[in-house]
């Protein structure tokens, strides 16, 4: 078995459910969790996660509240924070203070969907960043990642925004990227079925599952969400 990473939009459907879900994930073979910070204009996300962002914002979720939540939970998996750039750089007490707190909380890296490789030097965030690779990223760009400090590389497995979908058209390219980069390679966007997990594990180091979990949060009443998430992940891992 290889790595499994779960994306959890913080504060959806509410903060209490998020905390319960994070505890359940700790009982499962989950390698890491991406905590999604809500943003008003999430351009890389499809309808499922957009709705989650909007509701979390309505619930008053801020980066400050997420940091407080992280400080209270005790889990053994790694924590990554996923946020659009504006929310990080506009942190009220400054990005350096944010970085200091992320560091103290043991957060392993930042995942910023609107920060491409080419702009990474033009923002002042002195913290490990997760680079993205897409099916159309040029080879020379991919090789550049090898000179970076990065906890893992996030492979976007299709053209499109986040969501659930059936096919996985880029396995050959993923395999090629795996041979090029000297870091862990995790694959996300559109992964929702055990066969996909199995296929990705053959060529990369792990899968990232987001929308499929968020759909469960959308579908079930709050009280059932943690157990339904547990069930869904167990099914995905039955390989």
């Amino acid at each position: 078995m290889k790595d499994f990473v779960a994306y959890i939009p913080v504060g959806y459907p509410d903060m209490e459910v998020t905390v319960r879900v994070l505890k359940v994930l700790d009982t499962l073979p989950v390698k890491a969790v991406e905590l999604g910070i809500p943003f008003s204009d999430p351009i890389a996300d499809g309808p499922v996660i957009q709705t989650a962002h909007a509701i979390a914002l309505k619930n008053g979720v801020t980066l400050e509240r997420v940091l407080n939540m992280i400080s209270k939970i005790k889990v053994r998996y790694g924590i990554y924070v996923m946020s659009y750039l504006n929310v990080l750089l506009r942190f009220p007490s400054g990005v350096n203070e944010l970085v200091r707190r992320l560091h103290n909380l043991g957060v392993q890296g930042l995942i910023i969907p609107d920060l491409p490789l080419k702009e990474m030097d033009n923002v002042q965030i002195d913290f490990p960043l997760v680079p993205f690779v897409a099916p159309n990223t040029k080879d020379e760009e991919i090789r550049r990642i090898n000179e970076m400090e990065a906890p893992f590389v996030y492979y976007i497995s299709r053209f499109g925004v986040t969501g659930t979908r059936w096919d996985l058209p880029f396995l050959d390219h993923i395999e090629k990227v795996k041979k090029t980069v000297n870091k862990l390679l995790y694959v996300g966007f559109g992964i929702s079925r055990p066969e996909q997990v199995k296929a990705v594990w053959k060529v990369a180091d792990g899968v990232i599952v987001g929308s499929a979990l968020v759909k469960i949060m959308e579908k079930f009443p709050a009280s059932e969400i943690p157990s339904q998430i547990e069930k869904a992940i167990e099914e995905l891992l039955e390989v």
């Binding site: 351009i43 890389a44 750039l85 969907p113 609107d114 920060l115 491409p116 490789l117 080419k118 702009e119 990474m120 030097d121 033009n122 680079p131 993205f132 690779v133 897409a134 099916p135 159309n136 990223t137 040029k138 760009e141 550049r144 000179e147 970076m148 976007i156 053209f159």
Partner: peptide
């Protein structure tokens, strides 16, 4: 991380803050 700020900016403003998939 190996990139320089180029003519993609007006002074300090502008740039290409988009998902990696849009860069090509």
């Amino acid at each position: 991380r190996g990139y320089e700020k180029m003519e993609r900016y007006f002074g300090d403003y502008g740039g290409q803050f988009v998902p990696e998939i849009l860069m090509p």
